[in-house]
């Protein structure tokens, strides 16, 4: 297998030498044959012709040897490439359209796959996702509802809640993607902070704590220090509607980066 590969590679890379060798080898054979025939009394020219015939034609024999060396696919590929580039050079308009079409097609596919990969294919970034269940509630629920559920749910170890909110940020009141989550949210999912820390029940964080996404932190604070509890960046530009101080920045991850700019906490949960 390896021998085969090396042999073919050598045939391609040292093409000139291989061709010369082949030529010399077959020529030698024809000369020997011609000499043998001439020795039987055949005229020299006739002997040479006969020798060539017996080999099945000089060029044909060479071609068969190239085949046997495994060079045909390579030769054909090179020929096809040459032909293709010639054709494309002759009609630059067509070439441009073709290249553009392919670029567009590949680009769109790559973009789509990136999104689908991040949103659908990649498992959520928690350890042992098989131990988690998601419960969806269609009607609007409050943190008080969650508290009642927490009191009555005995088949699960932890119950954390999250709901979508739209906090506004800065002077312009830019709307953000946000989630309001229960205090035990990060502990339950086992999500750690990239910088600073996430809030937790154990640490007894105040109810107005916030955790920023890596993306948000980068965009608005240019990865400026957020600090533990007293985020300098967050204090300079508070999250207006919620006026929370950022406790930390959570792990760089596509899901959260794309869908949550800030997670904030609601009192009591």
């Amino acid at each position: 297998m390896l021998n085969d590969l090396l042999y073919r590679l050598r045939s391609i890379l040292r093409r000139r030498m291989v061709e010369d060798d082949l030529d010399a080898e077959l020529r030698f054979h024809m000369e020997q044959q011609a000499a043998k025939l001439a020795a039987t009394g055949l005229p020299v020219a006739e002997a040479a012709r006969e020798a060539r015939l017996r080999l099945g034609g000089f060029e044909q024999a060479k071609e068969n040897c190239r085949d046997a060396r495994g060079l045909r696919w390579w030769d054909e590929a090179v020929q096809n490439l040459r032909y293709a580039s010639r054709t494309l050079l002759h009609s630059p308009g067509f070439a441009a359209v073709a290249i553009l079409t392919m670029t567009l097609g590949i680009g769109v596919n790559t973009a789509l796959f990136t999104i689908i990969d991040a949103v659908l294919l990649r498992p959520i970034p928690i350890t042992h996702p098989e131990n988690y269940y998601a419960v969806r509630e269609d009607r609007i629920w409050t943190m008080a509802d969650l508290r009642i559920m927490q009191q009555h749910a005995h088949t699960v170890r932890e119950l954390a809640g999250s709901r979508i909110i739209v906090p506004t940020f800065g002077e312009t009141g830019e709307m953000l993607h946000g989630s309001q989550v229960s205090a035990n949210y990060f502990e339950t999912l086992g999500i750690h902070a990239l910088v600073g820390r996430v809030f937790s029940v154990r640490a007894g964080d105040p109810a107005d704590s916030a955790v920023l996404s890596d993306y948000f932190w980068n965009r608005h604070f240019h990865r400026d220090s957020v600090g533990d509890g007293q985020g300098a960046g967050a204090q300079r530009t508070p999250l207006h509607d919620y006026r929370r101080s950022a406790a930390g920045v959570h792990r760089h991850c596509a899901h959260y980066r794309k869908f949550l700019d800030a997670s904030s906490r609601r009192p009591g949960c």
């Binding site: 042999y7 080898e25 054979h29 099945g56 044909q60 068969n64 040897c65 046997a68 060396r69």
Partner: peptide, 23 residues
Amino acid sequence: VQQGSLYPALHRLERKGLIKAEW
């Protein structure tokens, strides 16, 4: 032996590593 098939066969055997060639 058909001389036309002799050399391709030799090159094929060389490629398979069953024989090696030297000048």
